[in-house]
Structures are given as structure tokens and as C-alpha cells.
Design a protein around this nucleic acid. Structure first.
Lengths: 209, 209
DNA sequence: GTCTATACACTGATAGAC
DNA sequence: GTCTATCAGTGTATAGAC
């Protein structure tokens, strides 16, 4: 793998991602981003005008990494509910391990300023496609009628599935501190068995015996 | 209920809670806290020396609101596992509704600076009492042997229970935006049925049929 | 496109009068 | 204890040379 010479705009964006995702909008410093990108402050403004605009770009990219996956997986029509859940948990937790700071970043910035979502929605109409859940709702009703799963609401189920994947990542410092005596290695082991555990937990919760 | 004339120190702390919990350590401004407390900046430093010290105080109070509850409930020995779960979910979600900004605040600040926990632990040794989970683990093994519940790890279970309660609160802007077309009222209704839903979901997941 | 230098506003913190 | 005034440091952003 040869390290490509990245153009300045990309170098800035990469540095901005790292700094913003770790320190947040208000904690990030343009100077630190410039240092990390190997350029100077003035150049940041040349490419991205203001700190807010640079942040906006970083946020949109972070958001689009870990939201659309949900859509893709729920919409794969040829799978049963159990298969979809297994497939989702597996893929989503893998994704989270690759980008462990993104969920906390996105969640936090949205709590500070929910307004950001408006801009994101305008540029990505796909997020508004509510028929996504309507289709999934139909499948859930269908399998419930067939006696495969208990009757269950799609939004409650999706919230639980996503929450069970994300929570151990965003709340890592607390859980690791309280339940694992702050042992990083033990917590990594804990996380690595969550895929299997979470999948079984959810399927047991909704299946008819 | 008569509004008591609060002393200055309390007024400052109340104002600081509000500002820090909404804007975070780096986003909060001493000026805003002073304004909200109805005093001036100099007085903040008179009572709490520095911004960091004031923040530390606020963080510790926030942390102690929503962590010890877990301990209290898990340790109530006269309850079955099912009863504990129902009791916990009920009480914890009620608590979260009273302080909806605390979980996000605590989680975020800990991700930015996990070091804070060290100080909190030193002042509250109770958090380190790991036998809490060992006792619960014994009860889980016991009920599994009796064929009441499936064999399950205490830490995985606790993570799921707490996560299912907290996630819809901290991720509210995202879930409400994507699944509920940003309708506040609908999301409030959604939250109000979660107690029952989450309890049943977990019990179904672990009970033997 | 990239740099240095700098403008200008704001922030946390302190000095000192009352 | 509480205030006004102010300082020193830092932050974003821009001007202007190359």
C-alpha cells in the first residue's frame, strides 16, 4: 500500500474529521486542524471559508457513514426478519468498530444543535423515505400472522436493534470503568462477543416458541 | 410551592448545571452562567475558582444522579430476575424523563476526557464495588439452573437493559428525525410506551418457554 | 495556492473599591 | 460578598506578499 500524495483539500478534511470527532465543534481548534494537515490556518479558510462550514462538511460525512447502512439492510427484500437482524447486527457492529468515534460525535452534536439535521435532510432526501419502515412493518405483520414472530412494532424493534449495537460503543468509558475495572483488553473481549450475543438476544425476544 | 430565596452558591450551581449540560465543557461560557444566575462573572470565580472546578462539581452531581440507581435496584435481594428487570426499567426510564439531558452530557464528556472518571471514583468508592455484579451473576446462574431463564452473562444483560432505556433519550434527535418525521408529540408518545415494551422485550429474550 | 502578519472580538481570570 | 474595570491569552478570520 503506497501512501498517495493527497491534495490539500483532502488533507484538510481528514485532519478536520479527526479533530472535530474527538473534540466536538466547540472544542476543536482551527490551529490544531491546520497542524494535523501540515498546512497553516489561512489555508483552512481559503478552502472552507469558516469553521462552521468545515464542521458542517465533516458532520454530513460522519452522518452518511452510519445511517444509510440501516436503510440498505432493512430494504434487502429477499431475507426473513431473523436473517435481516443477524445480517444487520453483524454488519453494523463491524462498521462501528471501524469508526468508534462517529456515533458519539453525531449524537452529541445533534443534541447540542438539532438544527443541523435540517441541512443534512435537504441534501439527502433518502433519509426521509419513510416507506422504508412501512415496508418493514408489512413484513413484520406478515411473519407475525404466520406465527413465526410475535407481533411487534417496526420502530420499537429498530430502535432496540440499533441501540444494542451502538450503546456499548458510545458508553464505553462508563461501562468499561464500572463493569470492567477500566481494563481495556477485557472490554475489547466483551465487545467481540457482542455480535453473537445481541443477535441471539433479539431473536429470542421476538420469536414464537 | 413557594420559591425559596436561594443562596448565591446554589444559584450559581443551578445555572452551571443548565449551561454545562446543554453546551458541554467547551461550549459553555462563564458569562452565560453568570447571567443565568443573576450575578456577575467575578463572583463565579470567588465561589468556584476556575471553570474546570465548577464543571467538575456539575459533572459529579450529574453522574451520581443516574448511576447509583442501578446499584440500588440490582441489590434489592428479595426480587426475582424478572421483577428486578421490570422494577429497574420502570424506575430508570422515569428518572431519565426527569433529567433527559444528563445521559448525553455524561456520555459525551467522558468520551472527550475519560480521565474525569478517576476523580469521581476516588470520591465515590461505591462505584468500584464489583461484587454488585458478582451477586447478580449468582442469582442469574441460580434461576438458569432452575430452568426459569436461559443462561446469561450479567454484564451483557445489564448493558442491554441500561442501553435500551438510555438510547432513545440520547439519540432522540436522530430517531425522531428519521422515524417520526421530526414530530415531537409523536415521539413523546413513543417514549411513553417504551417502559412496557422494553420490559416485555427483555423478559421474552431471557425467559425459558 | 500558500505563506506571514495582523486585525479584532471574546474568554477566563484577577485587582481593587465598596 | 459583590461589584466594576481590566488584563493577558486565545480564537476566528482576513489582508496582502509571493
Amino acid at each position: 500500500m503506497i501512501e498517495e500524495a493527497k491534495d490539500t483539500e483532502t488533507k484538510i478534511l481528514d485532519a478536520a474529521k479527526e479533530v472535530f470527532q474527538h473534540k466536538g465543534l466547540t472544542g476543536a481548534r482551527m490551529q490544531e486542524i491546520a497542524d494535523k494537515a501540515g498546512i497553516n490556518k489561512a489555508l483552512l479558510h481559503y478552502y472552507y471559508r469558516t469553521k462552521d462550514k468545515l464542521f458542517e462538511k465533516v458532520f454530513e460525512l460522519a452522518f452518511s457513514v452510519f445511517i444509510p447502512k440501516i436503510r440498505d439492510i432493512v430494504l434487502s427484500t429477499d431475507k426473513s426478519v431473523f436473517e435481516k437482524i443477524e445480517f444487520f447486527v453483524d454488519n453494523y457492529i463491524s462498521l462501528l468498530h471501524k469508526h468508534p468515534y462517529i456515533p458519539g460525535f453525531v449524537i452529541n452534536e445533534l443534541n447540542r444543535n438539532p438544527q443541523i439535521l435540517v441541512g443534512v435532510f435537504e441534501k439527502n432526501i433518502q433519509f426521509k423515505e419513510m416507506n422504508l419502515f412501512e415496508k418493514f412493518e408489512i413484513q413484520l405483520k406478515d411473519e407475525a400472522n404466520k406465527g413465526i414472530i410475535r407481533p411487534i412494532d417496526a420502530r420499537n424493534l429498530m430502535t432496540n436493534v440499533v441501540g444494542l449495537c451502538i450503546f456499548p460503543i458510545v458508553a464505553r468509558p462508563i461501562i468499561q470503568g464500572i463493569m470492567f475495572n477500566n481494563e481495556k483488553k477485557e472490554y475489547d473481549e466483551f465487545l467481540s462477543q457482542r455480535k453473537k450475543f445481541v443477535t441471539e438476544f433479539i431473536i429470542n425476544a421476538i420469536k414464537v416458541n
